[in-house]
Structure formats: structure tokens, C-alpha cells
Amino acid sequence: MTGLRLAGLMWLGLVLIFLYAPILVMAAMSFNASPFYQLPFEFSARWYHDLAENAAIRNAATRSVLIAVATTIIATSLGTAAALALFRHDFRGKRLLKLLLFPPIAIPWLITGTAMLIFFFAIGLGRGTPAVLIGHVALALPYVIVVVNARLAGFDITLEEAARALGAGPWTVTRRVTLPAIAPGIVAGALFAFAVSFDQFVVSYFLSKPGDSTLPVLIYTAIRKGFTPEINAVSTLIIVTSMALMLVVARFFSFGGHR
């Protein structure tokens, strides 16, 4: 028993090392004084200072956050509304529509990005922040619908009927009964939307104008030009923020299951 338990713990340890070792090395190096990763380790906050002074990175980070927030708001609202419509109504072609939600998740972003680029040029929108935003919303939407839809599958429709019988109109039913019940699904969907947009490289790279790129695009370009530890610093900040966000959400909501 204990032997098996020990083996299990060791296995878990290996998995965690595999997942976190590169990240830890990167975080450590962002505090190393040497720009060439030379040891011995010498603590310095120099790269964070440089980062604070680097307008290009700051602008790209701001743009990334703004686009991610806008994507989250738009994709979560539209996606939740779509999931509710799919849940409540039966209409012609509903099954086909639900089926069509999955391929965009599986199609490689490279292909989607190319298709979007061609499409946006064809309709005269071209490259730029509007194109990036539309592209991100389109990428995030299926995730939100699928996640909210999964939560709705465990939702008891008679709760809506009970609220209606008590005199609540459609809007009140949605606001007071349905949305609170599926809130964990909506939060999870929003988190997906934020992650899809904030992490997005391929589609952003295709659709952004040179000179107003998002953070991932900027990091990619910076690495190609030659590595600077500032990138380590900004990456560390991103990881700390997103992990904190995940922990807060996990603390308040359990995904999928009932509270």
C-alpha cells in the first residue's frame, strides 16, 4: 500500500517538474543580473526596470489586455446568449449548428488565420486592431458556447417553468434563475475567451498591422532579433497574473459540477 502510494507521489512529482521546471528557470533568470544566463546567479531587478522603461512592450501589453478584455466581454455575452438559445428552443438545423461549433476548435489556427486574412482583405477591412478583435471573438466564441452549453446540460428546465408560473417574464427568469445557476459555466467560458485572446499568436500575427502588434507577437519578434531578459521578466509577470486569476476562480467556482 505505502509503496504504491510513494510511487504515486513520485509520479506526481515528476509530472509537476515536467510542467513547471522550464517556467521556474525562466522566472529565476528574469532576476539574474547576467543577460547571457551566466551562473553564478546574481540577483537583480534590472530587467524589470528595463521593462518598465520599454514603451514598445508596455504598449503591446496594454493592447493585448484591452483586446483580451473586449474579446472576453463580447464572446461571453454572445456565446452565453447562443448557448441559451440552443438550450431553450428547438428549431430546424439545430443539430447541424451544434455540430458546426466543434470544427473551429479543431481547425489549426494557422489555417483559420490565413482564411481570416484573405476574408478581411476581400471585404476591405484589411489588417489592424478591428480585424484582430473580430478574429479573436470568432476564435473564442465556440469555446464559450461549448462550456456554457455543458453547464446548461445539468440545468433543470423546470426551474425556469417554476419561475414563469410564479409570474416572472422571460427576462426576469433569465436574470434571477438561469444566469445564477449557470454562472460557474459563464465564468469558465469567459476565462477561456480571455486565454484564447491573450495567448493568441498566430491569428494576431496575421491580422495585426506592423507597429501595433500584441504582446505575443512582440515577444516573437523580439526573440527573433536576439534574446533579451526583459522577455523573461514580462513572461514571468504574465504567468504570475494568470495563475493568480486561475486560483481565485477555482476558489469560488467548481467547474462543471454542482456547488
Binding site: D156, T158, L159, E161, A162, A163, R164, A165, L166, G167, A168, G169, V177
Partner: peptide, 17 residues
């Protein structure tokens, strides 16, 4: 519609919020 009929209804599974 239901919400305008002034009815009271009890469901098999009670449907409590």
C-alpha cells in the same frame, strides 16, 4: 402566457431555486 395567468404550480421534482 404562463406568467400572466395567475396560477400556482407545484412540480414533480419541486423545482426549488
Amino acid at each position: 402566457p404562463v406568467e400572466k395567468r395567475e396560477i400556482g404550480m407545484m412540480f414533480q421534482n419541486y423545482a426549488l431555486f
